[in-house]
Design a protein around this nucleic acid. Structure first.
Lengths: 330, 330
DNA sequence: CTGAAGCGTGAGAGCGCTCTCACAAACTAG
DNA sequence: CTAGTTTGTGAGAGCGCTCTCACGCTTCAG
């Protein structure tokens, strides 16, 4: 229609520099006029790229679903991908068999890369994909020794700032309810707790560390145990808001005033943090940002075809609320 | 490799009946052996179908993100789509401009159909897509008069059962904190409240209806207003758990015992319902099922190329908890 | 003035698949 | 035994695009 060959039209569509300005403009005018949109399938067929990236969300328990982490992460990923004109293909395997099929699918070359979210420990998927040459990016620190790109929040620093905040508030007998210690966040957040104590000149007391397994019931049991073993406790740092809320309920039931007698701090800053009384001080994660970074790393890996693993660690932010008001303030 | 033509190999791959059993087996053996996987792009190019369906989640405020509704819905959609070997393409426009681009994309024929979630009132997208011949399925009752397929939960019946439960528990002065009355759930849930009163032989009293706008603050204001205007209120049905939790906090702050003096019931059965004290009675929605049905309707529309709008209404389930224990029980 | 180099363009192949059509072989009916 | 029908298979076109290569034109050094 513009009086040029298909080759030249293609050059215009793909922003090739080898087109004279007049012709480019003429072609673009026609494109605008007829509402031409390139056919993805045909393009993929010849370029051997799909321009689509998979996001795999493997849900271990389903319990982790209690917070809008995934929507926010997806939103972050989506916005970056959209800006670069890439498709987001979502896959949510529900069984080991599903997951095997997802692996087959990804290896079959239907996508240019895969972003892996919330895999179980020891999942074979990352290794399978890497071996097959499919670029991957994960979220959350992977097991030691795996050479993969990932993004994560600085769990250690986040926990450290939370506990430092408690110390600043005049607390001295600070307990922690940890997550499972075979997970990176569980470990890192405990380490942050220990860091803060060390910096604050408070001796570490293993009797003040109890595992809550990231569950409501686990945290309740841990809190009861702590109250029993260390009735002089004056602050609790829980490795998640869910656990903090549960601990808070136990404290109140035991007749402790919060934050008067005991201060409580959580982690994640999920919605539950503002639905307790008093509202929970917590550590906020930049979830959308996490998604942006995942997508950014992914595109980088795909576009440059370089497979050097990279990692991006994002800082957290302490959000002080009533549950940890300082001694002076109460 | 199997000594047959490409045409015959294609027949085997696509389960055409016109292949002799021996040849079929021979071809399948080779497929297995070499791990052959059809190239989607090439197939799409000739079939003119992409075998992928879009899910568009347009987030009006972002506030609705406070609950894992989307992950659960996506999971439902995903599982049905996966079982039918279709791709799920997720699109999350963040601005009106994004949304226009999403529309362009969908109309360009890159997908076989689109599932629309959480659009703002009066969004032009459904009409645009329908006009362009792109099959769509929505979730939640669309504005009157629109001829689109959709799935929804039975908000009216859900609310009705919640309020009937309050009446059964011996409550007589039952207030409601409604959602925005320009939305279908807001209207339907209020209607269910009225239905239950009528059935229970309790006169409707507009003074007992207050709007909470589906927000924490709105509900708090509404509850305070209700307490002020009708101090004899002995039960509150809130059109969402968030609002119920907020109302509960206001009631407790005002010195009312829950459920002793006032019973509270919410809607949605989101995680906040079990994190309040006492825990909230609520109306549970079958969210995954909603996703399944959306995907099912979508595939039906695509595969049969019939454009008769269909709707699927799913029943809800009342989940009784402490906040609405009957008078006798307390 | 000549030949090499650079630039913008077109011709044409081919990406991997499905699908129509033709055809031979195997039936069936009269 | 013939003619018609059914059945399984292959030949070959073509889906819409990109990309290589060749070509003619301009520019510029020698």
């Amino acid at each position: 229609m513009a009086g040029v060959s298909r080759a030249t039209a293609s050059r215009v569509v793909n922003d090739s520099p080898r087109v004279s300005p007049e012709i480019r403009q003429a072609v673009q005018a026609v494109i605008e006029e007829v509402g031409y949109v390139p056919n993805r399938a045909a393009r993929s067929l010849v370029t051997r790229r799909s321009d689509s990236l998979a996001v795999v969300i493997a849900q271990p328990a389903g319990q982790v679903f209690s917070d809008p982490f995934f929507p926010r992460l997806l939103r972050g990923i989506s916005s970056t991908l959209t800006a670069r004109e890439r498709q987001l293909i979502l896959m949510m395997p529900e069984s080991p068999e599903d997951e095997r099929r997802v692996g087959d699918y990804l290896i079959a070359g239907h996508v240019d890369g895969a972003m892996l979210v919330s895999l179980h420990e020891g999942d074979p998927l990352p290794a399978r994909l890497t071996t097959a040459g499919v670029p991957i990016v994960m979220v959350g620190r992977p097991p030691r020794g795996s050479r993969v790109s990932y993004v994560d929040v600085d769990n250690r620093q986040g926990a450290q700032s939370a506990v430092a905040h408690l110390i600043e508030g005049g607390r001295r007998v600070i307990a922690t309810i940890t997550g499972p210690l075979d997970t990176a966040p569980g470990l890192d957040r405990r380490q942050g707790y220990r860091d803060a104590l060390a910096e604050g000149g408070i001796a570490l007391d293993h009797g003040l560390e109890a595992s809550g397994e990231f569950t409501r019931d686990g945290a309740a049991a841990a809190m009861m145990h702590l109250l029993d073993a260390r009735p002089d406790v004056d602050a609790v740092f829980a490795a998640s808001d869910l656990m903090a809320a549960s601990a808070l309920a136990v404290l109140v039931a035991a007749g402790r005033k919060v934050p008067g007698d005991v201060a409580v701090v959580g982690f994640d800053d999920m919605s539950i943090a503002v639905s307790t009384t008093p509202q929970l001080t917590s550590v906020r994660q930049p979830v959308e940002e996490l998604g942006h970074e995942m997508a950014r790393l992914m595109l980088e890996a795909v576009d440059t075809a370089d497979s050097v693993p990279r990692r991006v660690i994002l800082a957290t932010e302490l959000v002080p609320r009533a549950s940890s008001a300082g001694r002076e303030a109460s």
